[in-house]
């Protein structure tokens, strides 16, 4: 009996019923519901901003928040699709359109800040709350999504984890806008979207370590 036959015999011996993973769209929807519930709890804990009703009526706020939500959902779909062998790679590009809308809407509305006289004041005011707040609101959704991703195949670990963290960070930013009073567009662009970009870049770098083939993880743990 060859070594491969032996491996086949051993693997077949471990046969047990497994439930096929539901479609990435359904899983992303479930994830979004849980993530939004958690973000809602975090907003209540941090106490919503006093001018919330007024801000909610602003069209630019609505567009930005909806674009961020759409980015979160499509990034989650893309990340989950990326773990299913045989799915088209084009799915990884799903969040591009909502992401462009999100960045574009914030950048477009920040144009007066670039040209106005207050640019220097804006740039010199660091807003250190954004990064930890986005991390806090996005932490549980990120952990949940990574655990969902690890049930699939690490075909493109860096991209997949990066997309997963983009989804979670977008939820973090949606939550942040409900309790953090910061409406200077350039500040939002620099500190909030900048934080999202930093988190995505870090996660992408760590993707290969966070997301490995399961038997490879077992082998490495044994060595």
């Amino acid at each position: 009996m060859s070594a491969t036959d032996d491996v086949i015999r051993k693997i077949a011996g471990q046969a047990s019923p497994v439930r096929p993973l539901p479609s990435p769209w359904l899983r992303a929807m479930l994830w979004l519901v849980v993530a939004l519930c958690y973000a809602g709890v975090m907003v209540l804990m941090m106490s919503p901003r006093p001018d919330l009703t007024e801000v909610l009526a602003r069209p630019e706020f609505q567009i930005e928040q909806l674009a961020a939500l759409a980015t979160a959902f499509t990034a989650a779909v893309a990340a989950l699709s990326g773990t299913i062998p045989g799915r088209g790679r084009w799915m990884l590009l799903l969040p591009l359109a909502p992401l462009a809308l999100w960045l574009g809407s914030v950048a477009w509305s920040s144009a007066p800040d670039w040209t106005g006289s207050g640019l220097q004041d804006v740039m010199l005011r660091p807003d250190w709350m954004c990064f930890p707040a986005i991390v806090a609101v996005g932490a549980l959704p990120a952990c949940l999504l990574v655990s969902m991703l690890r049930r699939g195949a690490p075909l493109t670990p860096c991209t997949t984890v990066g997309l997963g963290v983009l989804a979670a960070a977008a939820i973090g930013d949606v939550g942040l806008r409900f309790f953090h009073v910061q409406d200077v567009r350039l500040m939002i662009l620099a500190w909030q979207l900048g934080s999202v970009a930093v988190l995505v870049a870090l996660a992408s770098c760590m993707g290969r370590y966070l997301f490995k083939w399961r038997h490879q993880r077992i082998q490495e743990a044994a060595e």
Partner: peptide, 15 residues
Amino acid sequence: QDILLSLHAVRASYD
């Protein structure tokens, strides 16, 4: 063998 082990690890991902 590596591919077979990988197939086993992610068999739930087959639709």
